[in-house]
C-alpha cells in the first residue's frame, strides 16, 4: 500500500469563492500524480446557502465523499459553517478558519442567535485550529475578493506540493487581471502560519 488517502473538507457560504479555490486545489493535486476525487454540493447555493466541497487524494481513491469523522483538513470560509461541519473532523486534524461571520436569515430576523463559542466548541474536537482574517489580508494586497486565495495558501503549507505549482494553477484559473493580486494573496496566506 502507498500513500493513505487524505481528506480535505472545504465549507462556507455561496459566493465566497469556494468552488474556484477547490478547482485550484484539485488541479494542484492532479499535477502531483495522485489519484484525486472532488465532490461538490451546491444545489441552491447561489442564494446564500451553505456550500461544501470535498477533495480526496492518495494512491487510489474510491468514494468522492468524505466520511464523518474522517477529514484530515477543514478549510472553513465562515465560522458558523466551520462549526456545522466539525463532526467530519478526524481527531488530530487541522482546521483553518476564516475570521468571518455571515449571519444566516434566522439570525438576521432575530429568531436565532449566532453562536459566540465557535472556537471553543471546535477546540473540543481538535487542537490544531488556525483562525485567519483572510478578508483584511487580501484587502491589504489589493482586493478582498482574493480572500479565498489567502485561505487556500494556508492549506497549501500542509500539502506535499511546491509553491511554483500553486502559482501555475492560480494563473490558469483566475482572470488575467487578477493574477498578480492572487499571487500576492497567496504569499500572504502562505507566510501566515
Amino acid at each position: 500500500m502507498g500513500v493513505e488517502t487524505k481528506n480535505i473538507l472545504i465549507v462556507g457560504v455561496g459566493g465566497q469563492g469556494i468552488i474556484s479555490a477547490t478547482d485550484i486545489l484539485a488541479q494542484v493535486l492532479v499535477s502531483t500524480e495522485y489519484d484525486v476525487k472532488v465532490s461538490e454540493a451546491h444545489g441552491m447555493s447561489q442564494g446564500g446557502g451553505s456550500v461544501n466541497t470535498m477533495v480526496r487524494f492518495g494512491n487510489k481513491v474510491y468514494s468522492p465523499v468524505i466520511e464523518k469523522g474522517q477529514a484530515d483538513y477543514m478549510l472553513a470560509f465562515e465560522k458558523l459553517e466551520a462549526l456545522r461541519w466539525s463532526n467530519f473532523l478526524k481527531p488530530g486534524s487541522t482546521v483553518i478558519m476564516n475570521d468571518e461571520i455571515i449571519k444566516p436569515l434566522p439570525v438576521l430576523l432575530g429568531k436565532a442567535k449566532y453562536p459566540d463559542d465557535i472556537e471553543e466548541r471546535i477546540r473540543r474536537r481538535v487542537t490544531n485550529l488556525v483562525t485567519i482574517d483572510a478578508g483584511n489580508l487580501a484587502e491589504s494586497v489589493g482586493s478582498r475578493r482574493a480572500a479565498n486565495i489567502v485561505l487556500l495558501a494556508c492549506l497549501a503549507t500542509f500539502m506535499p506540493v511546491p509553491k511554483d505549482v500553486w502559482y501555475a494553477c492560480i494563473e490558469r484559473r483566475v482572470p488575467p487581471k487578477a493574477v498578480e493580486v492572487s499571487k500576492s494573496a497567496f504569499d500572504m496566506g502562505y507566510e501566515f502560519l
Binding site: V13, M44, G47, L80, E81, R84
Partner: peptide
Amino acid sequence: EDDLPVRPPV
C-alpha cells in the same frame, strides 16, 4: 452540532 441556526438559501 445540532443546535445551530440553519442557513436556508434566500
